[in-house]
Computed example of a mutant assay.
Amino acid sequence: MKKAPFALAAAALMLTACGSSGGTTESGISLIAEGKLTVCTNPPYAPFEYEENGKIVGLDADIAAAIAEDLGVTSEMFSTSFEGIQSGVALSSGQCDLALSGITITEERKSVMNFTEAYVDDNLAVLVPSGSSITGAADLSGAKVGVQQATSGEKYAQDAGANTVQYEDNGLLLQAVQTGQVDAVVGNITVLSEMLTSDETLTVVEEIETGEQIAGAVATENSDLLEAANKTLAAMEEDGRMADLREKYLGISE
């Protein structure tokens, strides 16, 4: 999917300084809040995270709840900017213990955070309104293309010669293509497919094979939580819970 400016980093550090004194699970894993696994996320980014009746729900929220349950605590989804998440600032400054936000594993991000095992394989895609002259990625050069900022979709569109327009979240991105502010959108197929369910005038004209993988992330020094999260993810793959979630949220039958 999103380099946090200095102001964001400073704000995050102030938040940490004023926050809870933290806690420890029965297994000895340190958390930033007593009895809670605080999880950074960036809705709306359906089907991974979105709000429903004032609560953040979705694939990532369900995974967070499973990890928290295994730790003997509750999960709390903390909404923050994706810039802060993908830059590692949200984790390193103590805004959250874990990040689950439809995060694509990249070498650059590996330098500022440690990733869990991947739980979704993904690709990019090009989405356009009906009647568009754009029939695929080859037509993106010179076009005004909406992207979520600091994502793999943004980089792909820029490399394709598009005039990219950044949006902070997918809700704004959807509005942009619906109202003609942009000619097309480039983003992850799992998320763009969700847009199609809410607007029949939109269509995906090309899926781009990128072999992307989506995973959770922890601060680079938080090896204990990483191990615990991976243990839960492995158990969910083994007992079929993860397959059920992928079918529920992504429509992937395994």
Rank of each mutant, 00 (worst) to 15 (best):
C18T: 10
A90H: 02
V126Q: 03
A229D: 00
S92Y: 01
G136P: 13
T38H: 03
A234M: 02
N170A: 13
M1Q: 14
L8P: 02
G58I: 06
E154G: 14
G136W: 13
A65S: 11
C18I: 07
M1I: 13
N222F: 02
E108M: 03
Q148G: 10
S81I: 01
Y167F: 15
A228Y: 02
L59K: 02
R246Y: 09
V177M: 05
V204M: 08
L124V: 11
T116G: 08
L226A: 09
A235L: 03
Q181E: 13
A118D: 12
G211D: 07
M1R: 12
Q178E: 15
E209S: 15
V185K: 02
Q181V: 11
A234K: 12
L15E: 14
A229S: 01
G136L: 14
K2P: 13
V147D: 04
E200F: 08
N188S: 08
A228M: 04
V57E: 07
L172Q: 15
E237L: 00
E254D: 12
C40T: 04
Q213H: 14
A10E: 13
L13H: 08
E83S: 06
I103M: 08
E76Q: 13
Q175T: 11
F6K: 14
L172C: 11
M1S: 15
D60H: 07
E238L: 00
A46C: 11
N114V: 01
K3R: 15
G102R: 00
E83W: 04
D224F: 07
C96H: 00
D183H: 14
V177L: 09
K231Q: 09
K3I: 13
S111I: 03
L140S: 07
V145H: 03
T104L: 02
L13T: 10
D224S: 14
G146T: 06
I208N: 09
K248R: 07
A229E: 02
S130Y: 08
K144T: 15
P47L: 08
S21Q: 12
Q213Y: 09
V147N: 03
A243M: 09
E26Y: 02
L91M: 04
